[in-house]
């Protein structure tokens, strides 16, 4: 498999009033292979959405580089990026706000192809609608006439219009009910298999991620703390945070384990040393002084912890 998207030491910082800096993403390196699905997982404020957007050039990184298909796309101007846009598309959580309420579905779906001057629009729309499980009769209707699940299907169809190589989906199912969520999860899985499109899923839901992704990257306060094959990581987490996340998912089949204490610290003033040491049940004195680097544990897995569970 060849690498499609690669990020090297990517950081994204925001300057706030009073000279403070919000470190949304710090020193992240990752790679997405062709046709592969990588999940970015973490709690709110961990930087997963910012990372997802920075990866596809929505907002320039503060430092570091992004390569797409071997070429550097970070630092390019918006104009220069336009050439790359058709190859990377984004699906957002709130499907109701991505559609212009006053335009028909057909209009919105055709727009990306019109902008990029592609031919055969009607044919392509029909094909994609079939793929996402909707009939062509939706074309003359307006966004408000659809349920959340249908709108998310349309949203996915819109993202696929230009035949991208990479799809970044930010919480694509979290606004949906369980039964609808299952439909969308299945749909995304099918599309990935049939189209071979690589995906970056941004999600807080480990169960959904396990179902959709090949690999998982767990983020905490702007850094990746663990990465590896999704089944292996969720089977036996190496980082205490990954384990805590997994334990905190309410499941029908077992009682509630004792929760992590405290809140996620502010990304404006991240703790010294390992960012997780303030909440970690296994923290040692060393954890508050020295930040652990990502290092390999087992095949294709890395973890940033002085005392990994593996």
């Amino acid at each position: 498999m060849t690498i499609l998207l690669e990020a090297k030491n990517l950081s994204k910082h925001y300057s706030l009033a009073r000279g403070e800096t919000l470190r949304a993403v710090s020193d992240v390196s990752l790679a997405v292979h062709r046709g592969e699905a990588l999940a970015l997982v973490g709690e709110s404020g961990c930087g997963k959405s910012t990372l997802g957007r920075t990866l596809i050039g929505l907002g320039a990184p503060s430092s570091g580089e992004v390569f797409f298909d071997g070429e550097r796309i970070s630092g390019l101007s918006d104009r220069a990026l336009r050439r790359w846009r058709p190859r990377m598309q984004m699906v957002f959580q709130d499907s109701s706000s991505t559609f212009n309420p006053r335009r028909t579905i057909g209009d919105t779906l055709a727009e990306p192809m019109r902008i990029h001057g592609r031919a055969g629009i009607a044919e392509r729309i029909r094909m994609l609608l079939e793929q996402v499980g909707l009939s062509s009769s939706v074309l003359s209707r307006y966004p408000h006439e659809f349920s959340g699940g249908q709108r998310q299907r349309l949203n996915i169809a819109r993202a696929l219009m230009l035949g991208p190589d990479l799809l970044v989906a930010d919480e694509p199912t979290s606004a949906l009910d369980v039964s609808v969520q299952a439909q969308i999860v299945n749909l995304l899985r099918d599309l990935r298999n049939s189209l071979g499109v690589a995906c970056v899923f941004i999600s807080h839901d480990l169960a959904v991620v396990r179902q959709m992704a090949d690999r998982i990257a767990v983020m905490y306060l702007g850094r990746i703390v663990e990465e590896g094959d999704v089944l292996a990581v969720l089977e036996a987490p190496a980082h205490p945070y990954t384990r805590a996340l997994l334990n905190a998912v309410p499941r029908p089949d077992r009682p509630l384990p004792p929760p992590l204490k405290g809140d996620v610290p502010s990304p404006i003033h991240p703790p010294q040393g390992c960012a997780f040491h303030t909440r970690c049940p296994l923290a040692q004195p060393r954890c508050s002084q020295e930040r652990p680097e990502l290092r390999p544990v087992g095949e294709g897995r890395t973890v940033a912890c002085h005392y990994p569970l593996l």
Partner: peptide, 10 residues
Amino acid sequence: DVTVQAQILT
């Protein structure tokens, strides 16, 4: 968030 949810459920 899930870890906070666990606290509130407890």
